[in-house]
Nucleic acid binder design. Structure first.
Lengths: 333, 333
DNA sequence: CTGAAAGCGCTTACAG
DNA sequence: CTGAAAGCGCTTACAG
């Protein structure tokens, strides 16, 4: 069926090693080059990647571990990684773990076994076992979304995004605020965003009430929690640690017959596409997932080639002002 | 670094071929088995997949070609394929073509070159070049989303979904209808859905006006088109060929200050997650992407193993009644 | 510049 | 049941 390097050698009347040299950019005589090129075209030859990898003991594939495929952040990040990797002549192989940390660990070992040149992990939580696996496999690893002192990573600027969001709503006049966050096991989302936000809150002198709540990442959980809070004391604004949580709050608000942003303002973090599709649209801190993915791809390739890369890269963010916050708020100032 | 079959053979004091036989489930003596198992554990051995593939001239990887990563339908389908493939001990390799038909063709050849056991294509349009490529590579191929007489495929029931949707809105009393479709080059979405819908329209005796329009798949294009139509003659309902088009119509409606569903009703096809997040939520014909992906995975594995599979499988659908259609419509009946 | 040979890690007949 | 040998398609020193 498909032709091998030997076929080409035979057709061109040269040795296999010469063909191989040609293929790998080594020096080849002019006439020989012509003959080989002719033969390759004739036989539609294309090298067997397995034989190549077997020799090289390494592939040009970057294994990418992702907790879920059906999230805007994941998709965009993957697109960024994929496109950049293609440009650098690397391939991306995705392993979807369906939010199982156990599967994440397995994937690390499995990628190493498959001789991936490097591994990118779209991280949510870094456990001892992760670190252990990274050390064991001896393959370059890069984290996206979470940082760790021992591992290279590309993160979003969660702290400053939190700070900027806090600043923004204070400036709009809000002084009674519900912050709806997530577990602190997630350093980026659960800790950094909240801390940035807190810092902004602390800088205001007038009396300002902030209540901190915690919920899950999914919409129904956020919706239920919001309903509870609204029944309890109905704050004029919810600052939510993610766009999905904000969507849950919006659903709860509709169910209660509240009008956005008059009765209740809402903000998110993420900049998911859906936030501008809904009506009213959501004010949020947008992260640049695709760009972060591209940076991650560049960095892992550098690491694979044993060049040095800064340990921590911080991707930017932008506050997107939309309709879910009342910008003509009068009260409270 | 990582151990090879020779290491294991040495440690266990047997021949490589015996270890190989053990690994591949051949008959091995009891004592030998023990020794090999012990050695494998000791050396943490795990076979080199490249060497295996080089011999087998085939992998257990199914190449999956997808036009885009950032769409609900794609993600869900991929999740279905991935999970089912894992269960069957196959791996999925994704190639994202960013909606380039050219890249799609390239991916087919590239997958064949990488000795993929089979190829699944999330299809939008099947050209001559596709067929040519399929024939050239001699690798089992399966289409999802579009059908073709020569290729195995799993499709959604576009025709009956269109029919059911038509029936549904007629039943609700609508008689002046704008159908916002897409290019007929997309057989499933552009032709089948419309034809099913038309059939429902033809079955009604009373005078009923249906206008057929065409737009692009993306939200802004649909929004612009809807704006135009509304200015022109403002129909009481838009039946949209996809959920995204429906979202575009909703945006246009908000911009015009129309209230949904009182002033304008809207329906979609797809059952995207966002359709139940928005407010009012969207009435739509839901397809089962994940399930279709699972079926596709099962079928391609059957084909890889040279078992016979029905050429065409039709996945089901369900009309989801939500808030974007006025179910108490009085006029027009 | 070019070629013969060895070897990457595995599997598969073939003997024994 | 077990082992020696050949070979999958490629690359890499090493000679010439």
């Amino acid at each position: 069926m498909s032709s091998t390097i030997s076929d080409i050698a035979k057709i061109a009347g040269v040795a296999k090693s010469t063909v191989s040299r040609y293929l790998n950019g080594g020096s080849v005589g002019d006439k020989t080059r012509k003959k080989i090129e002719q033969a390759i075209k004739e036989a539609k030859y294309t090298p067997n990647p397995f034989a190549q990898s077997l020799k090289a003991k390494k592939t040009n594939i970057i294994g990418t571990i992702v907790p879920r495929l059906d999230s805007y952040a994941s998709s965009q990040t993957l697109i960024g990684i994929d496109e950049q990797l293609k440009r650098l002549n690397y391939q991306m192989l995705i392993s979807n773990t369906s939010q199982s940390l156990e599967r994440e660990i397995e994937s690390i070992y499995s990628f190493a076994n498959q001789k991936m040149a490097g591994i990118i992990l779209l991280a949510t939580e870094i456990t001892e076992q992760h670190i252990e696996a990274f050390e064991a496999v001896k393959v370059p690893v890069l984290l996206i979304g979470q940082e760790h002192p021992e591992i290279h990573s590309v993160i979003h600027d969660d702290f400053h995004a939190g700070y900027a969001m806090g600043h923004y709503i204070l400036e709009k006049g809000y002084r009674d605020i519900a912050y709806l966050g997530v577990t602190e096991r997630d350093i980026a989302v659960g800790v950094k965003r909240k801390h940035g936000f807190k810092k902004a809150m602390e800088e205001v002198q007038q009396d300002c009430h902030v209540h901190y709540y915690e919920t899950e990442f999914n919409i129904p959980a956020a919706q239920a929690k919001a309903r509870e809070i609204i029944h309890d004391h109905q704050p004029p604004i919810f600052v939510c640690a993610t766009d999905n949580i904000a969507l849950g709050v919006l659903k709860a608000a509709y169910a209660e017959g509240l009008s956005i942003p008059k009765d209740l303002a809402v903000t998110g973090f993420g900049g998911y596409e859906v936030t501008e599709i809904i009506h009213p649209s959501l004010t949020t801190a947008k992260f640049f997932y695709q760009e972060a993915g591209e940076t991650a791809a560049k960095h892992i390739v550098e690491l694979v080639n044993e060049r040095s890369v800064e340990k921590l890269t911080i991707s930017k963010f932008k506050i997107i002002e939309r309709e879910s916050v009342d910008i003509n708020l009068k009260h409270g100032i």
